[in-house]
Design a protein around this nucleic acid. Structure first.
Lengths: 354, 354
DNA sequence: TTGTAGGCGTTATCAT
DNA sequence: ATGATAACGCCTACAA
């Protein structure tokens, strides 16, 4: 097995100095045509490739991006990664992934592991636990050390960094307006407890949309599910809560669910109760994933364009990284951070009327 | 913004040598209690962390694992990543992800990017295109350079490396036997063209299981779908092919689909044709993902245990990496490679009878 | 045209 | 008990 060949070895083999080899390979005009040829031929033969680690150390930049997300088995997050990877690779960067698993500690540890030189900057979405603790010191510290962060989806305003989000309020309004325009008069929402920021915002959009249309939001139609029911796989409990909702409010003719799983489960319960979709009950969901497309009936959803979010986040981060290059030491120069809003889109399928 | 502090800076600040600082931080007994305290206090204050890149360069190992998979927006692959990440982190490794997007070129490029020092070893699943070209030189080269590879799921025997696979034949038999034991007499299979290795193996399992039970596999019941229909999002075409299958074979009472999407689509078509599931048609699918769990009816599936696959792959790789440590140069010592088979499991849900 | 030396941050070995 | 030096692999300013 031929170990990876280095400049040094080539130099020794060809009996020239290391710097000659280095220059020859970079086609420096300082080097004679002759040796250049010789070196390049040899390098090609032995399949020489500069060692990334050495380059990183020398250039003080790794050309890799650290991603920290709560979980990867999740359509939205994997779409985002796809987007990040796409533009990262296009711009010569690699992507290293850490999972927080919704845990504060794992988020902190993972960030520390990566922040010690392994990466140039972070793209991340905050863990639920961190959101609850409201402890953001690890983000602040990372940023203070000169490592830029771009947050997406689950962000928090007080952190000075670029952000890419979806207008959850607006997206929810899109959904509700669709239901209203299709004749719904008693629209329920299935959402999460308020500490999940996106759940809260979508609920807010629901309420605003109703009010905009002179309809009165009724608290009995707002079901705030404990999202542990989701993560801990307690489908039955979720079904029971939803069934209760329907039974206590027989006049429900529209449902807005803040995620696919709630939507699919609501449809299941509804079917069990004899409701026809979309004839007697219409359903719209947030988050456009696999379930929506392949459920029966397929779901009308508000798409967040996860991939676009990833692409934008990567561009923001890399722009900042490469911007910094010019002005290394120039202390505290009134950084301006951007918050990009990716437009949501209503994707109409079979769970609503035309 | 206080840049990351280095040994050098601490040394200067405290007016000692770099090596003293280094030793003090590692609690060397060579250093006086006094200076040790002083250095450690200072280091803590400035939140000193050794630079990973420098360590990697010095130790010639990065403590990171490169993953190359065809795509990440895919329940199975993200489960595998979860598994890899879990044990990698536990054993002090990071994980860097590259997507081949099923393309040969991207697979090669991604591997090259990572193989130049960024990682210690690969865990990968081969791109479809590579499987078709049957061009595996990039794997061979990587291995020859002393960088171990662990392949999972889509593997190819001729490459000398550890492998983690599922017994696709056996898994398929599990599915067919379930259908037979539930009274099915005309079982169709919806599978892929043969160049997709797992599709081929599952088809083989289907045929063997039928023969084992003295039933005659009929070619009219074997639908080999061009898997481009899947990736290019041409659901209608898929539906049409399946509808055709049902119409030409009215007596079908069981369907085995080699993936969730085929299964869900088959159920959709069946429902359209007025077939009741599971009363008049039973369905079993390979690959246990989100769709199976949340479709209506929920799907009986053969679970591949993606997370276990990932965990096992990571353990195999890290074991090999840490084994190598002892015997660096010891040339060609009759490497023994392992192929681990992760057992499949039948998960019974509503699409089959009890 | 080629080579030397220094440095990126660390650690290990060998002085002092 | 502390420090100088070399090395990991690469690049580059400067010297020859």
């Amino acid at each position: 097995m031929k170990r990876k060949v280095t400049l040094k070895q080539i130099a020794k083999e060809l009996d020239v100095s290391i710097s000659t080899v280095s220059k020859a390979l970079r086609n420096s005009i300082e080097i004679s045509e002759d040796t250049r040829q010789k070196v390049q031929a040899f390098a090609k033969l032995y399949n020489y490739r500069p060692n990334n680690i050495a380059l990183s150390l020398k250039n003080r930049k790794t050309k890799t991006i650290g991603i920290i997300i709560p979980e990867i088995v999740h359509h939205f997050f994997s779409k985002v990664i796809t987007g990040i990877e796409l533009v990262a690779n296009k711009r010569g960067y690699n992507v290293i992934v850490g999972l927080s698993n919704e845990s504060f500690d794992k988020e902190v540890i993972n960030m520390q592991m990566l922040a010690n030189g392994s990466i140039d900057g972070f793209i991340l979405s905050i863990a639920k636990e961190t959101l609850q603790h409201q402890d953001y010191h690890h983000f602040i510290e990372t940023i203070n050390q000169g490592m830029p962060i771009v947050m997406f989806d689950r962000v928090v305003n007080e952190i000075p960094c670029d952000k890419v989000i979806v207008d959850d309020v607006k997206g929810a309004k899109l959904a509700i307006e669709k239901l209203i325009s299709c004749g719904c008069e008693n629209i329920a929402i299935i959402t999460t407890k308020d500490y999940v920021s996106v759940g809260k915002l979508r609920t807010q959009g629901y309420i605003e949309a109703l009010e905009d249309n002179k309809m009165h939001p009724k608290s009995s139609l707002i079901l705030k599910v404990d999202d542990k029911l989701l993560s801990e796989n307690q489908l039955e409990a979720l079904e029971k809560e939803i069934e209760e909702l329907f039974k206590l409010n027989k006049n429900i003719d529209g449902v807005f669910a803040v995620n696919e799983l709630y939507a699919v489960t609501a449809m299941k319960v509804a079917r069990k109760l004899g409701l026809k979709i979309p004839e007697s009950l219409q359903v719209v969901s947030f988050t456009d994933g696999v379930l929506s497309k392949h459920s029966t009936p397929s779901l009308t959803t508000v798409s967040q364009h996860g991939q676009s979010i990833g692409e934008k986040a990567a561009d923001l981060l890399i722009n900042r990284l490469e911007m910094d290059e010019g002005e290394e030491g120039e202390e505290e120069e009134e950084e301006i951070y951007e918050t990009v809003i990716i437009e949501t889109e209503l994707i109409e399928r079979e769970s609503t009327k035309k």
